[in-house]
Amino acid sequence: MSEARPTDSRNAILGKLRAGRDAHPLTPPESDFTVLRDKRWAPSERLDRIKTMMEAVHTEFLETTEADWPTAVQDFLKAQGTRTLLYGTATEAGQRLAASWTEGGPELVPYDGPVETFKERLFDGIDAGITTTLGAIADTGSLIVWPTPEEPRLMSLVPHMHLALLRADQLYDTFWQAMTENRWADGMPTNALLISGPSKTADIEQTLAYGVHGPKRLVVVVIR
């Protein structure tokens, strides 16, 4: 195999593209985002729509309040027989959760070291993970999740159940609205996610099955 020098390929490719384009410049039509800008729902309708869309793909919802949510989460997990809950110790939500956690509930497991020291337990010994969200999107029924050092990326992926805290007043109409209003383009995080349900596949004869690689269950904890 010929091992071309990488810069040669880079310059050859870019040179060829430039020559091709300059020989036949292309004038693209205007990008008219009106169709996205005009997608609006009344604030009161957004959550209903999000629920309808996400429930259609097997997402579960837990309705609670600012005051009660840690207890509601604990009660829910107890009822499910969950043994371990992965959480972020340094977030405000994590601290509240830890502060109100009572005996008899699932074990709270902090994600407090690099994954290399934690992989085995993460893949084999964790039932559920809880993360915050940056809101949800009415158009597609999607949660916006930006993992952080306090809430690492795998918290919402590896445990069999993912609980996501959603503030009922943090709702957007469209993905486009969420990213433009919050000026995402000014600084993207390491990883930004939209999550719209539990992991699923239809690769076997187009039959839907949930929980193929990621969480088998997604529970949205709606905080009013």
């Binding site: 407090d112 690099p114 050092p149 690492p152 990883n191 539990p198 990621g214």
Partner: peptide
């Protein structure tokens, strides 16, 4: 189900990726 947007490798202080 997932839209996965990746902009960098693991940064200082991040625990996975």
């Amino acid at each position: 189900t997932y839209v996965n947007m990746i902009s960098s490798p693991r940064k200082e202080g991040e625990k996975d990726g």
